Amino acid sequence: MANASDRARRDTEDSNRRMLRARDAMDRAYAQPLDVPALAAIAHVSPAHFTRVFRATFGETPHRYLQRRRVERAMFLLRETGRSVTDICFDVGFSSLGTFSRTFRDIVGESPRAYRRSAPEAGVPTCFAMAWTRPRG
């Protein structure tokens, strides 16, 4: 019995490490074109298995995680720079302004332009700004 439970625990730890490796790659290269087969290769599993296990491990699909990561970076750029929404859209990895705006609105609850207008003023401590502006979805 102990051998079976030890093996199951080791298998779970190995699976978690593989998923973390892929998630870390998404965090580092969020602006790059990343697809499930490439991420599955990083985790050394099949694409179908990768999608199932990633969702079970992190509570969202790899695609949604990557979208959310890109939107978080866009939120920072909208708050901290005067760059155009279009430039920010492409810089964070979206290939279409329409898709970026729709995804941003789905996650944040308002358009990128509206978010920029409502962003906290300069001088607000970062910890408060991050708490107030954290995406909902």
Rank of each mutant, 00 (worst) to 15 (best):
D14C: 13
T51D: 14
R52P: 04
V53Y: 01
T86R: 10
F50N: 00
R70M: 10
T12G: 07
S46R: 15
R18C: 02
F104A: 07
A31T: 10
R64H: 10
D11P: 12
T81H: 13
R105I: 01
E80I: 12
S84T: 15
Q67W: 06
R105F: 00
N16G: 12
R116Q: 01
A25Q: 00
N3F: 06
R64E: 09
V45Y: 05
M19C: 03
L34E: 04
L78K: 01
V71P: 06
R70C: 12
Q32R: 10
G93L: 07
V71R: 00
S96D: 03
R10K: 14
S46G: 11
R28H: 02
D91K: 08
G123D: 08
S118M: 04
D91S: 03
V85I: 11
R113A: 01
I42W: 01
V71F: 10
R83E: 14
Q67K: 08
P33W: 07
F100K: 00
V92K: 12
D11G: 14
R28K: 06
D35F: 07
C89S: 10
R73P: 03
L66P: 00
H44F: 04
A56N: 15
R7K: 03
R73C: 13
V108F: 05
H44A: 14
Q32W: 14
A25C: 11
R9G: 08
W132G: 00
A74S: 06
I107D: 02
F128V: 04
G82L: 14
T133K: 10
M19R: 01
R28E: 08
L20C: 02
V108I: 07
P120H: 09
